[in-house]
Every structure is written in structure tokens, then in C-alpha cells.
């Protein structure tokens, strides 16, 4: 059976029928909870402006984990990944232009 499926290309087979194991999903949940604890802990210090950046970096890491494993993007076809990257880039352009404007506004 496995030989027959390997003929179609192992990679393709993996993409089409990947089922996340409970163990993997629990590990993902655990890492998300740990990162939440780090977020809360880091907020008990005053790093000045760095605080919001630390929070955003951790939040980005957490959302990457959610998107890749819970939302299964890692095991989707490339077109899903290209679409996702495009959407994020549009959002990034949108945000960076606003900040470009803001940087010169309140002076």
C-alpha cells in the first residue's frame, strides 16, 4: 500500500492527507501558553518604548504558530502560502506608510 502511494510522490501524499497528531497539537498549545506567560511576565518590567515591541514580537511568534499548525498552513499547497504572504505584505505596506506619515507629524 505504501509503495503504491509513494509512486505518486511522497510529498504530494503527505500534503493531501496530513493529519496533525493530538501530541503535536498539545505541544503547540503548550508553547502558546508558555509564550503567553512570557508576555505577561515581560509586562511587569518597564523597558520604556521597548515594551510594546517585545509584546509585538511575542504576539507575532504566537500567531505564526497558530497559523502554521492550528490553521494547518504548513501542510497546505504553496498557493495558500503565497496568498498568505501577499496578504501580510499588503498589511505591512499599509502599516509602514502610516508610520512614515506619523514619524513627521507630531514634531
Amino acid at each position: 500500500m505504501s509503495e503504491k502511494k509513494l509512486q505518486h510522490g511522497e510529498h504530494e501524499h503527505l500534503e493531501e492527507s496530513h493529519i496533525s497528531s493530538y501530541k503535536q497539537l498539545l505541544l503547540v498549545l503548550f508553547s502558546l501558553l508558555v509564550l503567553t506567560a512570557i508576555t505577561i511576565y515581560s509586562a511587569s518590567f518597564n523597558f520604556g518604548k521597548a515594551n510594546v515591541w517585545i509584546a509585538l514580537v511575542i504576539a507575532s511568534a504566537k500567531s505564526s504558530i497558530v497559523v502554521l499548525y492550528f490553521m494547518h498552513l504548513r501542510y497546505e499547497k504553496p498557493v495558500f502560502k503565497y496568498m498568505f504572504i501577499t496578504a501580510i505584505m499588503i498589511l505591512a505596506i499599509f502599516i509602514s506608510f502610516i508610520f512614515w506619515d506619523l514619524a513627521y507629524r507630531y514634531k
Binding site: N51, A59, F70
Partner: peptide, 23 residues
């Protein structure tokens, strides 16, 4: 339905530190 639910989670991941943990 799961994808939608994860999006809800995703947004909260940013809402929580930005609103509740401003230092």
C-alpha cells in the same frame, strides 16, 4: 469553521498585550 475560530484567537493574541499590558 475552525479556521474562523483560529482567526478569533489570532486577533486576541494581539489585543491582549496591546490593551491589557500597556506599560
Amino acid at each position: 469553521a475552525g479556521l474562523y475560530w483560529h482567526l478569533v484567537d489570532l486577533i486576541w493574541i494581539f489585543v491582549f498585550p496591546l490593551f491589557y499590558l500597556v506599560v
